[in-house]
Amino acid sequence: MGFLGQAWTIAWKDILGELRTREMVFSMLLFGFLVILIFNFGIEPGLRDEALVKPGVLWAAFVFAGILGLNRSFSSEKENDCLQGLLLCPVDRAVIYLGKFLGNFVFVLAMSLAVLLFFSVLYNVDVIAVLPGLLAILGLATIGFCAVGTLFSAVSVGIKTRDVLLAILLFPVLVPVILAAAKSSAFVMNGEGLFAGGSWLAMLVVYDVVFLAVSVMVFDYVLEE
């Protein structure tokens, strides 16, 4: 079994475990729905800048709910000291990183799609017409989010206050991805097309490439002790 096969085995293990316990997905969904709902109370219909506010609401929901999921990513490995079992395997640390990243990507993307559906109903946004563009942005932003989130989740796994710490560590680093995703989504939702926000889209791509590469390189040091 090669590098990617082993990484997928780790992701498969996380997905299978989550499908059985549903601990992470339920809490992420509930939190995402609540954020969308609460913002809805504050935004009056016919607001002048409504088109600019909506993408911000959507990405606030994705990010807050996504962090809940990332918190569980490595803390689930603490039970029975499974993380040590995983680290004892003769596999490159990059395989472990990639496996955890893939698992997180699947969870966050699934949660985002469900939240997007809820958002479209509650805010009366026709997402079907702009779905390809939104999916592209969602995919790119989720890669960046999970690339950094997986790394920081590993950093905070051994710390008692990891829930708070992860959010504190993650938010500053995630600013470019949140900003680029919200701006690109605004263009797409206004019907201007995916490439109207060209520089923001390029920023997402560059962010993904840089942070995936850096995370793979430093993951070994993060897991050292």
């Binding site: 293990k13 475990g17 000291d81 499974c82």
Partner: peptide, 25 residues
Amino acid sequence: VISHNTYLYPSLTAFENLRFYGRMY
């Protein structure tokens, strides 16, 4: 390594645990 910690994933079956570690090794 056999430790007092089992390194086993509680939500997976015994066979799935062995299959997981077997693929890693």
